[in-house]
Amino acid sequence: MKVTIDDISIEVPPGTTILEAARMIGENVPPTMCYYSKLEGSGGKCRSCLVQVTKGSEKDPRPMPKLVASCRTTVMDGMEVRNTTSPDVISARKSVTEFLLINHPIDCPICDQAGECDLQDLSYEHGLSKSRYDFKKRVFEKIDIGDYIQMHMTRCIMCYRCVMVADQLTPERVHGVLNRGEAAEISTYIKKAIDNEFSGNMIDVCPVGALTDKTFRFKSRVWFTKPVYAHRDCKTCSGKVTLWYQGAEVLRVTGRKDRWHEVEEFICNDCRFHKKDTADWVIESAAPVSRHSVISQNHNVYEVPVVRKKLQENNKPE
C-alpha cells in the first residue's frame, strides 16, 4: 500500500497506521504522548499526533472532514497525509500543547523526568513562551502507591499508558482512573497496593514525570548520567537493560529505549530496583542517544542523517 506523508511516499503493509508509516519514513514524525506501539489499544487520547488526510484513498479520494489521530488511523492505498506542511495541524498541535500544559505544574527543575520528558520536547517544539492560563492549577491529594514508584498526579497528562501496562503485563490490575473530567486521576484506591514484579514498567512508559523511580529520586539529573547497555541472566525477564552510570556508580536501571522513547523489552522489578551493582551485569556497549537530547552531550549518538552532514560541511566557516 502506498501512502504519501508530507510529499514523501512509502510502501507499507496493510493495517499500518499513519504514525507507523511516518516512523518508517523517519522524518517529521507526529509527536506521541499516549500512543505506545508495545501496548495494545493505546493512543488516540492526547491528540498531539493529529494529522490532516487530504486524500482518503485511491478508491475514495475525498479528504477526511476532521483532523485524525495518526496513531489510530490505518492507511489506505493512495492516501495522502499532511503533517507539518499543514497549518491546521500545526495550529491544532499548538492548542493541544497549550491544553496539556495549563494544569501541568512545569516543575522541571525538581522533576526527575526532566531531560527525557516527552512533554518537554512537545512544548519546546509547539508551546507558547508564556502561559495564557492565569488560574490556580489543579492539585491532587498525594497518595503513596508503594516502595518503588513515586507518583505525582499533578504532572499526569492522562495518557492511560500505565493502566494498560498493568492490564497487559501483570496478572491483576490494581490501579486505574477514578473520577471524571477535570477530576480524573490515576489512583490505586487502596494505598501501597501496587506490588507485583513488573510494576516498574509503569515508570518507563510514563511520558512525563508522574511516575518516577523512588530508588533514583533526587540522586542526579539524567544528563549527568551515562547510559550503558548491559544484560544479565534473569529468570523472570529478558534481562536486557540500560544502566545509567554516574562515575562508577549505577544510579538507575531502565529498559532499553528506542528512537521513539519506547522500551524494546519490558524488564522486571528485580533487575530494575535491586541490581545496582556493576558486578550484577555484563556490560555490552554505550547506549545510543538522540543527538537532540540533553543526554547526548559527549555521549554516543544515533547516526547523523546524511543530509545534515552535508549541511554541516557546507556551512563550515572558512
Partner: peptide, 21 residues
C-alpha cells in the same frame, strides 16, 4: 460541559475547564 467531560482526551478535559473559568 466542564462537569460532564469524561477526561479521556486532552482538548476536552483541559479546554472545557478553561472555558468555564
Amino acid at each position: 460541559y466542564h462537569h460532564e467531560s469524561c477526561g479521556q482526551c486532552s482538548p476536552c478535559r483541559e479546554g472545557t475547564i478553561w472555558l468555564d473559568k
